[in-house]
């Protein structure tokens, strides 16, 4: 293109000639406040009030005119922020070493890629695989893996407590436990490759779960018998909502050890695993009775 044409085209852009903006229409006159004050009304429906007592979902929150009350909106935004924060937190490079664990990482290079490429998060990178084969104990019953998953916050907060209680509970049930490892940028299926590499009977990954509203600190645990690459979700048993307001790490560690013991005994896992004889040991996890809902953490204070 000729230089002069280029210069003129640039000038046209600068003058707004390519898309001339019409002058803004004058603003309508805004009436003097207050036009009408809407008092906050509590939810009138008895059904809604009753339902709200059984869930953390946003039910029976009342309304102000046609809108939500301010504290409801603020609470919602704050809970969403907690979830966002948890997803975007990175597990520090030296976290594993500081806590005396073997640090591994998946084939993911950075956090963005981790979110976009689940497939890369399911395989170990070559250096980690070599390190694992060299440093970890082989031929154990249970290989436990702590991982960041979708919430490094949860991993750093209660991950170590869950790992400790799970390890102790396994040993109490006569299972040998492998060298604990920490995996960075890990997806659930990474346990297949790690478990296979050390020849463990059961591979257990404890990782930060996808944050929900207000819960950025939840851990999940996935167990699989005879781990190898190619296992599907039907081969796994899992437990979610492991945090202070859900199942506490101490209780969860115990239940997971029950599952691990059952897998080793029955030589299978997932949908084939028979849990019918374990209801006593699994406690209310196996029961169908009413359970109190989780406590919602108030992030917004309301002036009464």
């Amino acid at each position: 293109m000729s230089r002069t044409r280029h210069l003129v085209a640039e000038l046209r852009e600068r003058l707004g000639g390519a898309a001339p903006v019409p002058p803004p229409a004058p603003l309508p006159r805004i009436p003097e406040p207050p036009v009408r004050v809407f008092p906050k009304r509590a939810e009138g429906s008895r059904y809604a009030r009753e339902t709200a007592a059984h869930t953390t979902a946003l039910l029976g929150i009342g309304h102000v005119g046609t809108r939500y009350a301010t504290d409801v909106v603020l609470q919602f935004q704050a809970e969403l922020a907690v979830a966002h924060e948890a997803v975007h937190t990175d597990l520090p490079d030296d976290w594993a070493a500081k806590n005396g664990l073997v640090g591994l990482r998946s084939r993911v290079k950075d956090h963005r890629e981790f979110l976009l490429r689940p497939d890369l998060g399911r395989r170990l990178d070559d250096m980690s695989l070599a390190r694992l084969k060299m440093e970890a104990k082989h031929g154990v019953d249970v290989q436990s893996i702590l991982a960041d998953g979708l919430s490094a916050v949860a991993c750093m907060q209660s991950g170590l407590a869950l790992l400790a209680s799970f390890t102790a509970a396994c040993q109490a049930r006569g299972l040998s436990v492998g060298t604990p490892v920490v995996a960075r940028y890990a997806r659930v299926w990474l346990e297949d490759e790690i478990g296979a590499a050390v020849g463990a009977k059961v591979s257990a990954i404890l990782l930060g779960e996808r944050p929900g509203l207000g819960t950025g600190d939840g851990l999940s645990a996935y167990l699989v018998y005879d781990p190898k690459v190619g296992r599907t979700d039907g081969d796994r048993n899992m437990m979610s909502n492991i945090h202070a307001r859900g199942t506490t790490p101490e209780v969860a560690g115990d239940r997971l050890a029950v599952l691990a013991r059952a897998m080793v005994d029955q030589k299978r896992s997932g949908v084939d695993l028979d849990l019918s004889k374990l209801t006593a040991e699994l406690g209310d996890a196996a029961s169908r009775a009413h359970r109190a809902p989780q406590v919602r953490v108030r992030l917004v204070e309301v002036e009464k």
């Binding site: 293109m1 000729s2 230089r3 002069t4 044409r5 210069l7 003129v8 001339p20």
Partner: peptide
Amino acid sequence: ADACFYSADEAQKTAVFPHVIS
């Protein structure tokens, strides 16, 4: 491809020739 007048107003009644010869 190069030298030409340009319209200087929306009605295209005003022509301008701001040409640079390098």
